[in-house]
């Protein structure tokens, strides 16, 4: 479904990704793990066309290299950024509306689905998103991206700074996506949630993929964890 082959990415003159290669199958949850600065978020931005990229980037057999972020989003790739980036001066409902790519979007997801998944958002639908708690803002960003009806959703550090109970909610949300046939690229630093929900784990280091296998295989590779993951 999504294929990266020898992808190099740059921030200005800084060379961040050094030949990243992996793919994601339909309905698959892939965890992208690694320490800070290993290139995980840049990989997400490279897929979304937000940084300068070289190599091969294909989505449903079609090259998406040099496509603009909005074109890539319209092709069916959703992106939940690391720092949530809600629109603070708009209400919860308006934030969700912005997730829809067209005014009369007929996607897999409705407002009712979102509010059923996270009832707290329904209670606060007319509240400015800027006053929501960190957990509520995370729920809102996840739901906002879903309103765009993506086939693949890239979620960057969704559990960062969240209470354990909210982290559980996020895990349940990711499994719910899988039930509906949506692929997920889950960028995480915490092993726990990534290992419990993903089908496959990739480990990044120095801008390259240094491990690819099942969560069980990663569990049984203490050397990989020690060198590339543990602090």
């Amino acid at each position: 479904m999504l294929t990266l082959e020898g992808v190099h990415a740059y921030y200005g003159k800084s060379h961040i990704l050094h030949g990243v290669t992996f793919d994601i199958a339909p309905g698959e949850i892939v965890a992208l793990l690694g320490r800070n600065g290993s290139g995980r978020s840049t990989t997400a931005k490279a897929i979304m066309g937000m940084v300068k990229v070289e190599g091969a980037l294909r989505w449903k057999q079609q090259s998406i290299l040099y496509h603009k972020p909005y074109e890539i989003a319209r092709m069916g790739i959703g992106y939940v950024p690391e720092n949530r980036e809600i629109f603070p001066n708009l209400t919860v409902h308006q934030n969700l509306l912005l997730g829809q790519k067209r005014s009369r979007s007929i996607g897999r997801w409705t407002f009712d689905d979102m509010y059923a998944m996270f009832p707290r958002l329904k209670e606060r639908q007319h509240t400015d998103a800027g006053v929501l708690s960190g957990g509520e803002q995370q729920m809102l960003t996840l739901c906002r991206t879903l309103m765009g009806d993506p086939d693949l959703i890239i979620i960057d550090e969704p559990t960062e700074g969240l209470a354990p109970k909210i982290v559980e909610l996020v895990g349940a949300y990711i499994l719910r996506l899988k039930e509906r046939g949506i692929s997920v690229l889950l960028i995480e630093q915490k092993l726990t949630i990534a290992m419990s929900v993903s089908d496959r784990a990739l480990v990044m280091g120095h801008g390259q993929i240094v491990f690819s296998g099942t969560p069980a295989a990663l569990e049984n590779a203490p050397a990989v964890r020690a060198e590339w993951l543990e602090v």
């Binding site: 972020p69 909005y70 790519k101 906002r144």
Partner: peptide, 19 residues
């Protein structure tokens, strides 16, 4: 709505599929 959001964060609005 798109203009208001783009006033604050154009990159995010674009990543949501808006031109």
């Amino acid at each position: 709505l798109i203009i208001q959001a783009a006033l604050k964060n154009p990159e995010m609005v674009e990543a949501l599929g808006h031109n």
